[in-house]
Design a protein around this nucleic acid. Sequence first.
DNA 1: GATTATATATAACATTACTTAACTATTCAA
DNA 2: TTGAATAGTTAAGTAATGTTATATATAATC
Lengths: 155, 155
Amino acid sequence: MESCQENGVLEKDMNSIESAIMDWTAIITRLWMHDINQFTRTSGLSFGQMNLMLHIHYRGACEVSGVSDLMQMTPAGASQMVERMVQQGLVTRNEVPGDRRIRLVHLTRQGEEMVQGCIRLHEKWVHELAETLSSDEQAEAERILMRLTEIAGRS
Amino acid sequence: MESCQENGVLEKDMNSIESAIMDWTAIITRLWMHDINQFTRTSGLSFGQMNLMLHIHYRGACEVSGVSDLMQMTPAGASQMVERMVQQGLVTRNEVPGDRRIRLVHLTRQGEEMVQGCIRLHEKWVHELAETLSSDEQAEAERILMRLTEIAGRS
DNA sequence: GATTATATATAACATTACTTAACTATTCAA
DNA sequence: TTGAATAGTTAAGTAATGTTATATATAATC
């Protein structure tokens, strides 16, 4: 615990608990991305579309400019992407009381179901992972992950 | 721990360790996805390319047919995807001693740096998260997370 | 109240990134 | 050793997705 104080955190500077969190999180992020890919390919969506829907699901409705920012594309491109998704029934574009220029992009019921389908696919993998743990390990992992989630949830 | 045996895993059926893992995944998705997206796109990569590179980074070199399988595309499409990435200097295509039909796709130094850059986006965040744990919690977390990582690494 | 900036949309065009079909090279197996 | 199977590539065509340029409506500012 004597490293990392002054400058940015570099891998070689990381202490073992940081590495453990990093490795675990990187691994599940990769597998989560993998499952997202698998699900979207088989449901006629693009990865970008699912990405946006997950963003809205986890962060709430966003403006068209937010789509542009998230997807790193021009506002025109974002507008068209949203338009396509509206046509597909995945999202709605709603006016906002305060500023009539803005359109807020929400998930439709169908869009939400797509997200849930994606999450459910990933749950299968999580189920298999959990199964290979002993009862004691399960309890310990649960406690630690809940603690980490609680802390991370504050940010 | 008495659910989930027979049919698919539904959210309400999930036991608490599975929920804990899913909650952690949700937190990470909420906090990281946007950054990973931006990093990927500003580096001139597609999400699919980063997905493939993460796979190779964690699982080792894979055949072109493996790319086809992972990305859910035709062998021809996979071949072209690899060709593009070779042109971009992200991967190499190497012959295999045993079978001269096969090409193994490896990350180049540059490809490896891209992956590292993506993973390192959140080192500071991990550092701060780890800091808030007590010494006992850190020791426990390190042990169980390494165990989880080990199991997850097999998939 | 006129000007500037912001948020989004539309149109024309360009590019990407697939697909199918056909082909080469190599290995396996009868 | 000949035929079938496997691994990968190449070419042509297509559909999706993005860009620039321009337009419109609204909000903010001076």
